[in-house]
């Protein structure tokens, strides 16, 4: 009933990904279609490093919701971004166990090295820095999460090497470790990065 103007047209994200879309929708029972909301947000974010308002509206349309509902859900979570993050999104855990292992100093180090403050992305769009809460790596603290990959027990030298590698646009193998009982085993071979 209100006079809505159509938005400028953007090519829908899922226009050429219909199969993927159907696969995601098919995961959930028919009456639970709305459950696909988070996976669809993830899908967009992995590709575009953020979820724009146009995508929010597209997802709303797919699920038969109002865009407001999608936005309400999306903004509830810490890891959906409204604005694009850099190619290397550095997430530093500063919660207690990591803090006890030097995470605050690690955070300061990153701020200085990258000339970024919490929440910023550099002008080239390479690095974003974000402080996050406990990542479940307390036994192998401190931890730095780069995009979806954990780098654990990040010492100053490891951190330097990691930054250097990313500046060369390479991402080394994750340093997934186990600690405790399971420490002696060989490091993980596969890596977690997609």
């Amino acid at each position: 009933m209100s006079s809505r103007q159509p938005l400028p047209t953007v090519t829908p994200f899922f226009a050429d990904k219909q199969e993927r879309l159907s696969e995601i929708l098919a995961r959930y029972p028919e009456y639970g279609r709305r459950s696909a909301l988070m996976p669809l947000l993830w899908e967009v974010q992995r590709a575009e490093r953020h979820v724009s308002e146009a995508r929010v509206e597209e997802i709303a349309e797919i699920l038969g919701l109002h865009a407001t509902e999608v936005k309400g859900v999306m903004s509830f979570y810490g890891t959906y971004h409204e604005h694009p993050v850099g190619r290397y999104h550095l997430q530093v855990c500063r919660t207690l166990s990591c803090s006890l292992a030097g995470a605050d100093t690690l955070a300061d180090f990153l701020e200085d090295e990258l000339d970024l403050v919490n929440g910023e992305t550099d002008p080239e769009g390479r690095f974003s820095l974000q402080y996050v809460e406990c990542l479940g790596s307390c036994g192998t603290a401190p931890v730095l999460q780069v995009n979806d990959t954990y780098f654990e027990r990040v010492s100053r030298s490891r951190c330097r090497a990691l930054l250097d590698a990313m500046r060369r646009d390479t991402l080394p193998e994750p340093t997934l470790e186990r600690g405790g009982d399971n420490e002696p085993n060989a490091p993980d071979q596969e890596g977690g990065a997609a």
């Binding site: 009933m1 209100s2 809505r4 308002e53 865009a67 999608v70 936005k71 309400g72």
Partner: peptide, 11 residues
């Protein structure tokens, strides 16, 4: 409180 809907489309 917020909305993305232009002008709260509801009667």
């Amino acid at each position: 409180i917020g909305t993305l809907e232009d002008g709260l489309p509801s009667n």
